[in-house]
Computed example of a mutant assay.
Amino acid sequence: MANAHVSPVVTGFGDRSALSLATLVSRLIAWNDARRTRIILSRLSAHELNDIGLTRGDIDLIR
Rank of each mutant, 00 (worst) to 15 (best):
N3P: 01
I40G: 03
H5K: 07
I52H: 02
A46Y: 12
P8A: 05
S20L: 13
L24E: 12
F13E: 04
D51N: 13
A4Q: 05
D51T: 08
V10P: 02
S7D: 13
I39D: 01
P8E: 06
L28I: 03
I40V: 09
L41R: 00
V6Y: 04
R38T: 00
T23I: 09
A46N: 15
I39Q: 03
A30V: 05
L24A: 11
E48Q: 15
R36N: 08
R27A: 06
D15M: 04
V25D: 11
N32M: 09
R16N: 10
W31L: 09
H5A: 10
A46R: 14
R35A: 13
G53W: 02
D15H: 03
V9L: 08
R27V: 05
N32D: 12
L21F: 13
W31I: 07
S7T: 03
S45N: 09
G12Q: 09
T23A: 06
V10L: 06
F13R: 06
A22L: 12
D51K: 07
L28P: 00
G53M: 03
A22M: 07
A30Q: 11
L44I: 02
R38Y: 00
E48T: 07
L19Y: 15
L49A: 02
R38S: 00
D51F: 05
R35I: 01
R36K: 11
T37V: 10
N50P: 00
I40H: 06
V6D: 01
R43N: 13
L19I: 04
F13V: 03
E48F: 04
H5L: 08
L49I: 03
R36H: 05
I40D: 09
L28S: 10
I52G: 03
T37R: 07
D51I: 01
L49E: 00
A34L: 08
A4P: 01
H5T: 07
H47Y: 14
R43D: 15
H47R: 13
S26A: 13
T11G: 06
L28Q: 10
L21V: 07
V6Q: 01
A18W: 05
L24N: 13
A22S: 13
R36E: 05
N32I: 11
G14V: 02
V9W: 03
N3Y: 04
D33G: 10
L19V: 04
S45F: 09
A30W: 05
H47F: 15
I29T: 11
D15S: 12
E48A: 14
A4I: 08
D33C: 09
R43K: 10
L41N: 00
W31E: 13
T11S: 06
S42Y: 01
R38P: 00
G14L: 10
A18H: 09
G53L: 02
D15I: 06
S17Q: 11
R16K: 12
G14M: 12
S17P: 01
L24M: 08
L41V: 01
L44W: 04
V25T: 12
A34Y: 12
S17D: 14
V6A: 01
L21P: 01
S42T: 09
A18N: 14
S42R: 03
T23S: 05
G12L: 06
T11P: 02
R35Y: 15
R43Q: 14
E48Y: 04
N32P: 03
A4M: 02
D51M: 07
D51S: 11
I29H: 08
P8Y: 07
A34Q: 11
V25M: 08
F13P: 00
I40Q: 08
F13I: 07
R27N: 14
